[in-house]
């Protein structure tokens, strides 16, 4: 874009161009060789004055077009391309940044998930241990209560049996008094009472 086609300064080109233009006009007005007519007769109209002036016009036109139009156009195109490249690089940077953020976010998400999973597992284990502990404690308490209840039942049963035995004895004695009073055979009656009591215990 910055390449130049010639190292000749523009003012020099313009001055040389103008000089050639004037020289062409002078040549045209002062030089009329015979071969002009010959060439015209052959359908090739030639005038070196016009040629020289044309060269002069082109010499000062080229740098003017270059300086006035081509260079601004090149600068505008360069500026536009630079702006586009900057925009593209910014977009690329933002995309990279977004990719990095996405990657970080995914890592954070994975770490959070792992942490949460670990905590959940830990809580589950803890709950299971607590459950085991509570269950064993409850079982122990239940066993103790059952044992205590059995002991109380046995004691109550023994007491009730003793009361019953005493009551039965009293009844038996009362019955015996009546029987003795009737039979007067005390030993034999007592033996009968004892047998009765024995049978009553067996029956219980």
């Amino acid at each position: 874009m910055s390449q130049t086609s010639s190292s000749v300064p523009t003012p020099v080109k313009v001055v040389v161009g103008l000089a050639l233009f004037v020289g062409g006009a002078f040549l045209h007005s002062s030089w009329h060789p015979e071969f002009y007519k010959t060439l015209e007769g052959q359908g090739v109209p030639l005038d070196f004055g016009i040629t020289l002036s044309a060269i002069g016009v082109l010499l000062f036109t080229f740098p003017i077009i270059d300086m006035f139009f081509v260079k601004p156009l090149q600068a505008a195109l360069h500026e536009r391309n630079s702006a586009l490249e900057t925009t593209f690089s910014e977009v690329e940077e933002l995309r990279n940044e977004m990719t990095t953020m996405k990657s970080n976010y995914e890592k954070q998400l994975a770490a959070t998930e792992a942490d949460a999973r670990e905590k959940i597992n830990s809580q589950i284990k803890e709950a299971q241990a607590l459950r085991q502990s509570v269950m064993s404690e409850a079982t122990e308490k239940a066993d103790a209560l059952v044992k205590q209840a059995q002991e109380e039942i046995n004691m109550e049963k023994n007491r009730v049996l003793a009361d019953l035995r005493s009551h039965v004895t009293d009844l038996a004695l009362a019955a015996a008094e009546k029987v003795v009073a009737e039979n007067m055979d005390t030993d034999r009656n007592r033996k009968l009472i004892a047998d009765f009591v024995q049978q009553a215990e067996v029956a219980k």
């Binding site: 090739v44 109209p45 030639l46 005038d47 070196f48 004055g49 016009i50 040629t51 020289l52 002036s53 044309a54 060269i55 016009v57 082109l58 010499l59």
Partner: peptide
């Protein structure tokens, strides 16, 4: 033609 010759010479 003379003008074209000038361009060609350039």
């Amino acid at each position: 033609l003379s003008f074209n010759l000038g361009m060609a010479l350039v």
